[in-house]
Design a protein around this nucleic acid. Structure first.
Lengths: 352, 352
DNA sequence: CAATTTTACACAATCGATTGTGATAGTTTA
DNA sequence: TAAACTATCACAATCGATTGTGTAAAATTG
């Protein structure tokens, strides 16, 4: 025997109460034009019959789904999952659902996902771009139909859209400057794909810090990769084999930085005396590795929250046409991996 | 000037082509009864006009949303985000969207989320239970309406539903047995909430391993907590202060285990000589901490994939009424934190 | 008490796509 | 050539909730 029972609709309730479906609908939504007794009776029966509103029908009629779409490169990954957590929290409080999809850093997938989310008539879209993406036409439909579009972290500056980012340049600059103040003079950099804003800006911050202190920018010390632990390890091996190896590494993420520490230690180097290391993100591993990794703090959850608030803001206030770019603060968490026992003032002053 | 343009519907296409909306709909879905030329013309114009099917309307009519709902305790957390990643991957391939929501380990929130997802008429629901949940009535509507319900990891055995789990008992048993074989005789345990299957089973595995080797089960060596790093640290301090402190800790997760290593090291103990430690989950930190942590391997992504496949299976094959429980294999990844230089065979044989 | 408001509810259209049932023309078969 | 198919497409109902408009009864006002 099938347990399946027909779903309860407002018509079923209306019939039982000898009122119209209109009345039921309005009663359930506390519409002023429905009498108090009727409203109560409707609600009571609705509960008794186990009525659950059909959001789909409502969405179709109201042309509003109360759903926010999210496209990210990868769901696992500490930063992204924290981001999503923040998005869900704010969305939930405002009565929105969250549909997530991952692009797997593939442009093609990102396009497909965007189309799907558009077809699903999401009320807003939050995106952290795929590594491959260089074209943004798949987001046009959202713009053209006034669906709030917010980029987070990995953003596009070529599109008119809201952005929630951190100041990668400053963060990288500070990280590098910190290394310089610790007495490092040959600082290497683990860099990522340069067409993605985050990695480009980090590299620029690194370079500008070197320049400020009149240190040479040596291209052989800049290692490009996907910043995985494997690549971090390889990159470190490469650097250590140089005739004039670096005395520090500033990595664009924590994974590669941790790998650098491990690789250097295996090579017999002392961290930070022989090689100082700074990472980026403040992943959990950064505080666990030995020595603990100096790194840049990311307000990941807040970025998700704020991105969602931006979506909601545009929803509430249709007049807001201007797109905003919100820049969040980062911090430099100094741990042992970069703490060299060097007289700070002297070493820096000597450079000027 | 507003850019907003009316959305294109099949009626718009129909009008331009002087055919009926029926024809357009069928053409877009490659229905056999529509002529080849017409089909091509429709598709061509649809593309030209930037038509995007309205999934909401389709869902209402077909009574199928192509959406899978997911409720998890917390989205960030390595295990969960990997789980979701697996869910999204399989769902996407089958043309399903994924709506995620987090219960924040709150029963009340879990109930609300379940109701919302039901109202959204998800085609299936995947749940990893909140810590607090002891009542499962909020899932009844899904059962009664034949909406596939799959529990993952944190499951209920009191409900008729699919389950995707690991054998926590065996995993914990093996972990504990491993410690015994390494020569440990006073093995402590970091335990979680006992009404949640995963933690209860792990504790049972631990206890049974002790019993098998005729080791006493000492309640003072079992520390209950939420298994956070803070609690792991505190628990370790407590254990080390005992008049007869343990020579090993088997923790129900990695966070607490890592904290134990750090705390013990700070107290001057050598790992694993003075204190052997085994964790659970194989989080990234487990391989980074020093010494690297022996731990239980979780097939997190696979669990998500399989849970989703179960949902799809029920969708395709309506006859499948029987609910399944799928148990996935775990592994014991032995690292330095438990590798004591003890003659294995002798030490174990001596016990029998 | 007549005129006017207010209260409380019903009608019917609507959102956009889907689908069972027909209907018309063109083709094939006997 | 008449009968029997086939291939193509249109009609109209439908999914469930929402909403502008209309209306009768009750309440208020002058």
């Amino acid at each position: 025997m099938k347990k399946s029972k027909k779903e309860v609709t407002i018509y079923d309730i209306a019939e039982q109460l000898n009122v119209s479906a209109t009345t039921v609908s309005r009663a359930l939504n506390d519409h002023f034009s429905i009498g108090k007794e009727t409203t109560l009776a409707v609600k009571k029966l609705a509960k008794k019959m186990g009525y659950r509103p059909n959001t789909i029908a409502s969405s179709l009629r109201k042309n509003k789904t109360n759903t926010i779409g999210v496209i990210v490169p990868w769901i696992h990954r500490p930063f992204i999952s924290s981001l999503i957590s923040g998005i869900e929290e704010v969305a939930d409080k405002a009565g929105y659902n969250v549909i997530i999809s991952q692009s797997c850093d593939s442009f093609e997938k990102e396009v497909t996902k965007a189309q799907t989310l558009y077809s699903n008539r999401v009320d807003g879209l939050i995106v952290s771009l795929a590594m491959e993406t260089k074209n943004y036409e798949h987001f046009y439909p959202f713009q053209q139909n006034d669906i709030p579009l917010v980029f987070v972290d990995r953003v596009s500056f070529e599109m008119e859209a809201d952005r929630v980012i951190i100041n990668n340049f400053d963060a990288a600059f500070n990280a590098t400057e910190h290394l310089i103040k610790m007495g490092c003079r040959r600082i290497a950099h683990f860099a990522g794909a340069q067409h993605r804003n985050v990695y480009r800006e980090r590299q620029e911050g690194y370079i500008n810090a070197l320049k400020k202190y009149n240190l040479p920018v040596d291209e052989t010390l800049i290692v490009y990769s996907n910043l995985s632990m494997e690549e971090g390890w390889k990159g470190t091996e490469y650097l250590l084999k140089l005739s004039d190896p670096p005395d520090a590494i500033f990595s664009a993420n924590d994974s590669a930085a941790v790998a650098a520490i491990q690789c250097a230690k295996e090579a017999g180097l002392k961290i930070p005396e022989d090689l100082a290391v700074v990472g980026f993100n403040n992943d959990r591993i950064s505080s666990i590795v030995e020595p603990p990794l100096t790194t840049i703090t990311h307000p990941a959850i807040d970025m998700g929250k704020i991105a969602t608030q931006q979506v909601l803001k545009h929803k509430e206030n249709k007049d807001v046409v201007q797109s905003e770019t919100i820049v969040l603060k980062t911090g430099l968490t100094i741990r042992t991996s970069s703490l060299r026992k060097v007289a700070i003032k002297n070493s820096v002053q000597g450079l000027r």
